[in-house]
């Protein structure tokens, strides 16, 4: 069965490029425009991995990660965050919030896919 990926990013072009790459690879893709929007998908349906941006309006990436980790059904699913900041501080913060790993923007599709395959089979 195809794996389901939830992408959360407020930038349409990023969403599209990620969506395009993943659908091409045979993933089922769900798309949220910010953390708040993404939460609606966490209604018990099967989601295999979440990829989220950190800076977003309404509910940001960190907030989203914390919320996801509070929901029993999604407590252990891999969450990757997209970030341009290579500073360790930001990564630590996100890791502490419960993120599994990160993808540094800019990324080419190979990088995106390898990051996913690192945490999801």
């Amino acid at each position: 069965m195809a794996k389901t990926v939830l992408i959360v990013d407020d930038s349409e072009s990023i969403r599209e490029v990620v969506n395009f790459t993943l659908e091409n690879e045979g993933y089922d893709v769900l798309v949220g425009v910010d953390g708040e929007d993404a939460l609606q998908f966490l209604d018990g349906r099967n989601i295999d991995i979440i990829i989220t941006d950190l800076h977003m309006p309404n509910l940001d990436g960190l907030g989203l990660i914390r919320k996801v980790r509070e929901i029993d059904a999604y407590k252990h699913i891999p969450i990757l965050f997209l970030t341009t900041e290579s500073q360790a501080a930001k990564k630590m913060e996100a890791k502490q919030a419960g993120a599994t790993g990160w993808i540094i923007k800019p990324f080419v599709s190979a990088k995106l896919l390898s990051a996913i395959s690192r945490v999801l089979r």
Binding site: S11, S13, P57, T84, K105
Partner: peptide, 24 residues
Amino acid sequence: IERIFRAMHTLKGGGAMFGFNDLS
């Protein structure tokens, strides 16, 4: 300020991804 930061952030990230290196 948050809104400004976000807009810049998006420009920077996208810029690098889509080959606008100076912009980024």
